[in-house]
Design a protein around this nucleic acid. Structure first.
Lengths: 291, 291
DNA sequence: ACATTTGCCTGACTTTAGTCAGGTAAATGT
DNA sequence: ACATTTACCTGACTAAAGTCAGGCAAATGT
């Protein structure tokens, strides 16, 4: 744990504290105490159960109770008992509360836009922020099976195609609507997985089947900001599990030897090299794995 | 100002608030109120003048006064009147206060080390943090004329040599102690500039003269984390000004055509291409500027 | 010279945050 | 069934943070 690294972390925290603090301060701009504003916003973003609110905001039961009553007196929230457990209570925004919440959102957006405006000539800032965001909250990344045609899937595929196009100096379009692969990457033949962090798509992988015992891994991609976190490995694992659930016994894939990191990942995960199984010009390495 | 960018800023702020908050919390670990701890630390890092303290910590005059008195009662600080203006007062740490300050520093380092430990398998995190830190606080970057042999200069030159070595697959050593260039890059012949952010060196440039009206720009380098901020331009400007102060009338430099960003910067700043003036194998483009 | 401003202190006050010991009603364990 | 636990509320309290008016001494303006 070098002193230099610690200094860099502390410099970082000092530098962002100012900007991030300004964003937090927007919660004070509407004449309400910070505590009350935080509760209102937590309810607005979906923490309705009081116990969830308490643990999210790290509030004492008594304190939360009082803040809630204050918001109720203002007519911003309503609290009812939980239908399953009548000890528990559930809060929700009233119409007036929603308006107030929207005002807080607008304020926060304004502050964020202010940060952006102050640094709009620093194109690398947002990318670097993404890397930090994703790394710090990578425990929250989830894998979802979605339709190949759904918005998050299309987001990944567009980004993937753009990346391939610039890297190989060719034009790729991986998501034509009439694509015959479309049917092969949804159940019962195959599936399509995306990795998401709080809704934002960070990567994808497709399992393309034909009803038989053999299927193919396609469209494996990780967003640049999410690389270096071992996401590829967990996404491959998730894809293999999904394939197993579909009754698939053997998976194949093609890749290019210049992608050495991917190649060593496959070898590391128990894939073994096989003979060429298609005539595509781009791939020059072929792998297989028995599930 | 796209909604997507605003979302990314807000996600970033949410993600770092947790970690940064934990670092701030270390101020509570020694049984003192947050306000008192912040004042003690602000004095420790150099804010001694009360008016400077007030604006740095955004404290009400009365509040600061009381916090200071509390610290005085603990024997941690001493306050004297300002020698120039006897209305103003200046605080400084006592021996006991210094010890207490060091304990806070140790706690903060510990927390930072904790963050590092939690993410040590994310090699890109620190780099990304550096980009964020430097971009957000780039207004604080200063240029200093230093000796070619000084620590910050050597830091830059080592990094520069390493970068050249890996990029060109050769071995460079730009800072041999017996280097004849050493004398030519200090007054009265030339100079050596480093760009620093709170002490950390971010880039360098040398002006190598021989006493005559003509000098050469050498060793121009910007730390990877500090690129994309226009630092190269301001560093070149600073170098030209320093050269002018030394009585130099013409500057020359050599570069390589693959460094297209540098080349377009030179053209943009009024340099014009000239004939080859040395026999080095690496450069293939030569520029000159009359000051 | 004298009014004004600046820099800081003091006292009196309010608000916010946070803690803790009960208390009630519903759910759960055995 | 009855003791225990859980989920929340209430009241009483303290500590910390923040506000404001006034005051004093030194500096400054004219």
């Amino acid at each position: 744990m070098s002193a230099d690294q610690i200094t860099r972390i502390r410099d970082f925290s000092r530098a962002v504290a100012v900007e991030v603090g300004a964003l937090e301060d927007s919660f004070l701009d509407r004449g309400r105490s910070l505590g009350a504003a935080r509760v209102l916003n937590a309810i607005g973003i979906g923490y309705k159960n009081l116990s969830a609110l308490r643990s999210f905001l790290q509030l004492d039961s008594g304190l939360l109770s009082r803040l809630l009553r204050g918001l109720e007196d203002e007519g911003l929230i309503e609290t009812t008992t939980h239908p399953m457990d009548r000890r528990s209570r559930v809060s929700s925004l009233t119409e007036k509360g929603k308006q107030e919440f929207d005002l807080y959102e607008a304020l926060s957006n304004e502050r964020a836009a202010g940060i952006l405006a102050r640094h709009k000539d620093a194109p690398r800032l947002l990318q670097a922020m993404d890397v930090v965001t994703i790394t710090l909250s990578r425990k929250d990344i989830v894998f979802e099976e979605v339709d190949y045609a759904s918005a998050p899937a299309q987001h990944c595929l567009t980004a993937f195609a753009d990346e391939l196009s610039t890297r190989l100096n060719l034009t790729f379009d991986l998501k034509q609507s009439g694509d015959p692969e479309l049917a092969q990457m949804k159940p019962p033949f195959g599936t399509f997985l995306v990795a998401r962090l709080q809704g934002r798509p960070l990567g994808c992988v497709g399992v393309k089947g034909s009803g038989g015992p053999c299927a193919e891994i396609k469209r494996m991609w990780i967003a640049p900001s999410a690389r270096g976190l071992g996401l590829a490995r967990s996404m491959m694992t998730a894809a293999e599990e999904a394939a197993r659930r579909l009754g698939i016994q053997t998976l194949r894939l093609d890749t290019n030897s210049t992608l050495f990191e991917a190649v060593s990942l496959y070898q590391n995960m128990g894939w073994h090299q096989i003979e060429r199984f298609n005539a595509d010009p781009y791939p020059d390495l072929f792998f297989e794995k028995h599930l």
